[in-house]
């Protein structure tokens, strides 16, 4: 194995490792292109006059976009659940995905409470309940998409 700090983020299986590495490289390449396009637009046309908060927001957006791109490519490539191919395995994994989503939702709720504090008005209370629910549902949905794509791919490769 090639020594790199990236190994921390990469799966052990060599096919998955190569695919994830490609996704990360694609994300980095696209972000480089976006940054160049953005700076060209700013220089020759838009002439943005941004304050430090806006600059921080834009700078923070790029790593988020990179992670998002890699995550969605990973999900849609069907390489996450490598062993699922039959109905029984699919149902079992779906059950596990449901439990995982619930756990992640609870963690999200706890972190949300720690960061935001106890809600003091109606809108904050709605936020506190609705956001973790939406997050949990989206997490479960993406896990389900990944599971479906993986099962389809594995079915095509079965013995």
């Amino acid at each position: 194995m090639i020594l790199s700090f990236l190994n921390v983020f990469l799966p052990e299986d060599e096919y998955k490792r190569l695919r994830v590495l490609y996704f990360m490289a694609e994300a980095a390449f696209l972000m480089g292109g976006l940054l160049m396009l953005g700076s060209a637009l700013n220089n020759y046309w838009l002439k943005w006059n941004l304050d430090s908060t806006e600059v921080t927001f834009i700078l923070m957006m790029f790593p988020m976009l990179m992670v998002g791109y890699t995550y969605f490519r990973y999900i849609f490539s069907g390489i996450e659940h490598t062993e699922v191919s039959n109905k029984r395995g699919y149902k079992e994994e779906r059950r596990v995905a449901g439990k995982r989503a619930l756990l992640v939702g609870v963690l999200f709720f706890i972190i949300f409470v720690i960061v935001k504090g106890i809600p003091t008005n109606y809108y904050e209370r709605i936020d506190m309940i609705a956001l973790p629910i939406v997050f949990t549902l989206l997490y479960f949905l993406f896990d389900l998409v990944s599971l479906k794509r993986s099962a389809k791919k594995n079915n095509e490769l079965e013995d």
Partner: peptide, 26 residues
């Protein structure tokens, strides 16, 4: 089986399937 071979060589069943189909060069 693909799964048994995958376990022996520390890979995934999917990777073995892809190699057998000629869709991945190990």
């Amino acid at each position: 089986t693909q799964a048994q071979l995958a376990k022996q060589v520390n890979a995934t069943r999917q990777t073995i399937g892809l190699i057998e189909k000629g869709e991945y060069n190990p």
